[in-house]
């Protein structure tokens, strides 16, 4: 049984269709990424899956429970990091955690205290536990909100832009945490993000949505290769000139060469990078080029993404 399954999942706000007939499954233990430009419907999708709002059409099941008919059960087993940190500014970090831990059913006092301590220490917030959440910095609030989302060890975790506002170290901590939760605890994680490197690194599969509809689903690798194209060869020279470019272009395996604004950088499209690289390098050298470095440049998920959503992300 998939951990999350949707069929024809749709949400309308008046005449606007925010989410339009989404069909996707997420397997247990998977980290599934939801990508898409602003207003694509990521947050709305997550809200429906977390039983916060109900679909206008279609259905979704989370761990086998219907998000409409068994909404209480769904809310018990999922954890959610909402788009806004949604913390009580007048309560301290500890009081915030205490409230949510109990709301999520951790009724035993000692267990609750230990769990909160463990998590706050993990995020370097334990020392600040008695400070009002309202006095926290943006990133600290985000970390506290993530702590809240996982306090009850949910089977399924929804994270709406988890690394927004975080410094590089904290972002890495969160990524490590997600990997650990998915690998060790077999938690299913659905995350929405604008950081394509994160999605690339973490997700076993991503879905790109636009105007509420799914554009493509697949592993980051599939999307990179299929959509952004094959890898490119990058050669840096001490000095590049037309003669070198022409001699490379003359090779049979080369389909295109571009000389970068950066004076000595050539980007070469090849049908088969591995096989053709030695030939290309030899012809550059023979044409008198002084080679500084040779690299294979993988297309990024970003390129694939930009091709798909038409470049108007962020």
């Amino acid at each position: 049984m998939p951990s999350i399954e949707t069929e024809g999942l749709t949400k309308r706000f008046g005449s606007l269709t925010a989410v339009d007939h989404l069909n996707f499954d997420v397997e247990a233990g998977e980290i599934f990424g939801l990508l898409g430009p602003n207003g694509a419907g990521k947050t709305t999708t997550i809200r429906m899956l977390a039983s916060l709002i109900s679909p206008s059409e279609g259905y979704a099941r989370v761990s086998g429970h219907d998000v409409v008919k068994e909404s209480l059960k769904v809310r018990e087993i999922v954890g959610i990091l909402t788009e806004n940190p949604s913390l009580y500014d007048r309560l301290t970090a500890y009081e915030n955690m205490e409230f949510f831990a109990e709301a999520y059913g951790i009724t035993d006092r000692v267990e609750r205290r230990d769990r909160i301590r463990e998590l706050l220490e993990l995020f370097d917030l334990w020392e600040r536990r008695d400070d009002k959440a309202g006095n926290f910095s943006k990133g600290m609030k985000q970390k506290l909100a993530i702590t809240r989302a996982i306090v009850h060890n949910p089977e399924i975790l929804f994270l709406d832009e988890p690394t927004s506002g975080l410094d590089p170290k904290s972002s890495k901590d969160i990524r490590d945490l997600m990997e650990e939760l998915s690998r060790r605890e077999n938690q299913t994680i659905l995350l929405s993000t604008h950081r394509l490197e994160d999605a690339d690194r973490l997700c076993s599969r991503v879905m790109i949505i636009k105007d509420g509809g799914s554009v493509v689903v697949g592993s980051p690798e599939e999307l990179r290769n299929k959509i952004a194209g094959t890898p490119l060869l990058e050669i840096r020279l001490r000095k590049a000139d037309e003669r070198i470019v022409r001699s490379v272009e003359a090779l049979e395996q080369v389909s295109a060469v571009s000389l970068d604004a950066d004076p000595g950088r050539m980007l070469i499209s090849l049908d088969d990078v591995e096989a053709a690289t030695p030939l290309v390098v030899r012809s550059v050298v023979e044409a008198g080029g002084m080679v500084l470095s040779v690299n294979v440049v993988e297309p990024s998920l970003e390129e694939a993404y930009l091709k798909l959503v038409g470049g108007d992300s962020e």
């Binding site: 059960k73 959610i80 909402t82 999520y104 909100a145």
Partner: peptide, 14 residues
């Protein structure tokens, strides 16, 4: 108004 309602509504409280 303070946008705390969403996390509250996400909890298993009826």
């Amino acid at each position: 108004e303070r946008k705390t309602i969403e996390a509250l509504l996400a909890t298993p409280i009826t």
